[in-house]
Amino acid sequence: MKYGEFIKHVQSFAQLNSHEDAERATRATLETIKERIVGDEAKDLASQLPKELGEYLRGREGENGQTFSIQEFISRVSEKEGVDPVSATTHARAVFEVLRNAVTPGEFKDFQANFSNDYAELFPTSQESMANG
């Protein structure tokens, strides 16, 4: 999936008004994912994304992820993006949905394994995906 396509899908899923808003939501979510998951898993995820997006996930190779709740995750996305927590939740959910379609099913499963069950509301629930289904 190309960068513009990824951002366009985030914009559509999150019902954002502009490409720039979708870029901001994507960056805030990916940077928070980088803080939360194991650094090597973030690198693996980055390797399947467009270079521009992968950069938001790199830089913590060999480090453990921080353990924090979904509420803290949303709070961090909200702060980085400059939106309220309800909007940040919607935007993060959109980014997770597009991620599922942008990487291989095995990589998405590995990524998802970094999160506790309380994060379930951010993960897509449908079995079919746009790119892999």
Results as ranks from 00 to 15, higher is better:
S12Q: 11
P50W: 10
A14F: 07
V95R: 05
L122C: 03
F111G: 04
L45Q: 02
E20W: 06
I70S: 07
P105V: 10
F115T: 07
F111Y: 11
E72I: 10
R24E: 05
D21A: 15
I37R: 03
V77R: 01
F108G: 05
F115C: 05
T89Q: 12
E52A: 12
E97Y: 10
R27V: 11
S12H: 11
F68S: 00
M130W: 15
K109M: 08
N117C: 07
A42L: 02
G62S: 11
Y56Q: 06
V86N: 09
L57Q: 03
K109A: 14
V95K: 06
M130K: 15
R36W: 00
I33D: 03
S126P: 03
S12Y: 12
E35A: 12
F6S: 01
D21P: 01
Q11W: 01
V98S: 05
E52F: 03
R24L: 07
F13M: 06
Q127G: 15
P124R: 06
Q15E: 14
R93N: 07
T90R: 15
R60G: 06
D40Q: 11
S47T: 08
S116E: 15
G106L: 13
E97V: 08
H9G: 00
E121R: 15
R93S: 13
S78Y: 06
Q127K: 13
P105N: 09
T26W: 07
K34M: 04
M1W: 03
G4W: 03
T90S: 14
F96V: 08
L49M: 13
T32R: 04
G54I: 08
A94S: 12
N17S: 14
Q66H: 12
A94H: 08
I33Q: 06
F73S: 00
R93T: 14
N117I: 13
E55D: 11
E20D: 13
T104H: 10
R76A: 07
L99E: 05
K109V: 06
R36V: 01
I37N: 04
R100F: 09
K80F: 08
A88S: 11
R60W: 00
L99K: 03
R24K: 15
E31N: 08
Q112L: 10
D118L: 08
F6A: 02
F123C: 02
G82F: 07
V95A: 04
R60C: 00
K34R: 15
V38P: 01
F108P: 02
F73A: 01
T89D: 02
P85V: 02
P85S: 04
S12L: 10
P50S: 09
S78V: 05
P105M: 05
A14L: 05
R24D: 03
T67D: 14
E23D: 10
D110M: 09
S75F: 10
E97S: 12
T104W: 06
P124N: 02
G106S: 14
S116I: 11
S126L: 13
G39F: 09
V10W: 04
Q48I: 01
T26P: 06
G133L: 11
F68R: 01
V95P: 01
S116L: 14
I7M: 00
F115I: 07
Q127T: 13
Y3C: 00
R27T: 11
T125M: 08
D110G: 12
A46E: 06
S126Q: 14
E63G: 05
T32Q: 02
D110R: 15
I7F: 05
R58C: 01
A94W: 03
P50H: 09
